[in-house]
Amino acid sequence: MIPKVNLDRFFLRIGSCTIYLGVMGSMSAINAKRLQELQTTKPKKKFQSYFLANKWLYIMLIPGLTFLFIFHYIPMYGIIIAFKDFNVVKGIFNSPWVGLENFKYLFKSKDFYIILRNSVSISLLRMFWGFPVPIILALMLNEVRHIHYKKTIQTILYIPHFISWVVIVGIIYNFLSPSTGIVNYIIKSLGGEAIAFLQDERYFRSILVISDIWKESGWGTIIYLAAISGIDECLYEAAIIDGATRLQRIRYVTIPGIASTIIVLLILRSGSILRNGFEQIFLMYSPLVYDVADVFETYTYRVGLREGRFSYATAVGMFQSLVGLILIWTTNRLSRKFGEGGLW
């Protein structure tokens, strides 16, 4: 029987796999530290007895690893279609090999450079404006003393994350419409001319970045809040005794306390520099803004999936993943070099 693979999910998996590995990596880093401590305090203790002492932890790891192996590693064999002329009916193994044909075509395509430029620039814009926002929000939330007030704000901040892009883009359309949108209504009532925001290359990327920040930054605070709550209270007490103001406590205790988390997330983020997500851009763009909005995901959809060129789509996906891998590796190296620790 021919094995079945759901291609687009497969790529999602490869993407999420990187994150899993990251998370797993950071966990094993924690474990490794503990192991090191154990080994330094009791140098004679053998690994075997260590293993036996922690056997339940290892047993609990099995389902997760099995899942990872079955659904994330086994399907990876499908990546070979990037080097084949994949034919759905013939299946993955029986399709003819074409070598690097798909990659050659990708690099030859004159769209490639536009898409690469757009992907990187949108991604960098998101990182530059979007990455600090959850950190700032988390720091601010942490200073809120009224517990109910804090919880309410947190919930309000999370909610946009659970709204799908389809709905959000619908809302954006309705807000920014040159004919019926409230923003243009205000502009017009102030005596201005209606602006077709979504049809204008000058505004498009800003709208992408702002809507992304609005949707995801609240959700992003969770991990920082968790990191903040892990900071030893004694440090704050000592700081207070030393006469540190609230801002000084944030500057000298909280921020250094979550620095390693920030670094880890930044490294992970750098790995997805060529990834901008499909839905948001696909739902918002039009031929009028292709020059600034067309990214790998939308290009793959139009040229690869709609035209039934799965091999090509896979090759593009593989290229993105490879670049991501190289970037993660590089940033990790840099981070370790500058003494901030890394993912591994």
Binding site: V23, S26, I30, I222, I223, A227, G230, D232, T261
Partner: peptide
């Protein structure tokens, strides 16, 4: 301490 962070990572996972 870091337990909470670890717990959170596990639950995210």
């Amino acid at each position: 301490m870091k337990k909470l962070l670890a717990m959170l990572l596990i639950s995210v996972l």
